[in-house]
């Protein structure tokens, strides 16, 4: 009795909210689009703005994915997608720190603003060398030290090359975080509204996260099973990130489809810190013949730009 009352109230509030938002969007669509304040606690599901056939701008709930239908349980997630070996190729010549990969990945994985599965570094190998932007997900290493050191098998390497974390198994010892040389892993230090998502947990989605456990980029196997590419790949406006199956030797960034071996050989692809021997599944194409000057990457809010203040290039820039 009480429950249903509560529910009713909630629904009413939700309804009110939707209609208000609809009204709002009719007024000043532009500003509304820019940033509808998202309150993760009471967010009434994800909304998309559309035109109704009679010309009204409306907000309708986004197509709800039926999670149960595609649900991959933690046990089932140990099995890789058969006969595949996923690779990613990141073309550093095209990256301008647009951060779309970061944002879309964060959104899809319900990450708070400061937590990033994909991070964009400003790298400069030496003072004289040219600086460049380097997006860095988890490398899904073929010799993953993070997996080797886990005492309970909460993180594992699958036959399709993907390294996943089962946060229902993870005891939060953080050993894997010291084991990973690429700082790919993050700990859920506190409980937060972002960890409460109404969706069954699967290691393949990494959602919902759990306090006291570790999470990281998962290569989006849920998307792959759906025939779609990871969020970061499709989000990049520059087509920086290529994704595909090494066994069929095809990678694509959504626009362009190339043979993986051809791309790597013709553009001298490399893996970051190859000498550590972890054998990453993520390759980089060197930042030569660049499409953008590196300065274009500072087209970001201050709190992002501030991150790079210790890079020699930035220091020099500030001096002049």
């Amino acid at each position: 009795m009480d429950d249903s009352l509560q529910n009713n109230k909630n629904n009413r509030r939700k309804f009110l909210r939707i209609s208000l938002l609809t009204g709002l969007s009719a007024v000043a669509a532009k500003t509304v689009f820019a940033d509808i304040p998202v309150d993760p606690e009471n967010e009434p599901g994800e909304m998309v703005t559309l035109l109704s056939p009679d010309g009204q701008l409306v907000k309708v709930p986004k197509e709800k994915i039926n999670y149960m239908e595609k649900y991959i349980s933690p046990e089932a997630s140990h099995q890789g997608i058969p006969h595949r070996k996923f690779v990613m190729v990141i073309d550093l010549a095209k990256c301008k720190n647009a951060r779309k990969c970061v944002e879309h990945c964060q959104k899809a994985h319900h990450l708070p603003p400061q937590q990033e599965f994909m991070k964009v570094y400003l790298m400069q190998e030496s003072e004289e060398a040219a600086p460049y932007w380097m997006p860095k997900p988890c490398f899904h290493c073929d010799k993953p030290l993070c997996v080797s050191v886990c005492p309970v098998g909460a993180t594992y390497k699958r036959s399709d090359g993907i390294v996943l974390i089962d946060n229902e198994r993870c005891i939060g010892c953080k050993f894997c975080m010291t084991g990973c040389p690429y700082s790919a892993r993050q700990f859920n230090w506190a409980d937060s509204p972002y960890l409460h998502v109404d969706q069954p947990y699967s290691p393949e989605t990494s959602v919902p996260g759990k306090e006291g456990t570790v999470s990281k980029c998962d290569f989006c196997p849920d998307m792959i099973r759906d025939g779609k590419m990871p969020h970061c790949v499709t989000a990049c406006p520059m087509g920086v990130i290529y994704f595909g199956d090494q066994l069929e030797d095809i990678v694509t960034n959504g626009d362009e489809t190339i043979r993986f071996s051809e791309l790597i050989t013709s553009r001298s692809g490399y893996r970051h810190l190859e000498d550590l021997g972890t054998k990453p599944s993520v390759y980089y194409l060197p930042p030569v013949n660049r499409q953008f000057p590196v300065e274009r990457g500072f087209d970001q809010p201050d709190e992002i730009n501030q991150r790079y203040k210790d890079v020699p290039f930035v220091k020099k820039m500030h001096k002049n």
Partner: peptide, 10 residues
Amino acid sequence: YVQGLFSKLK
């Protein structure tokens, strides 16, 4: 073209 996992390779 040949069909790949996500797209067609020319």
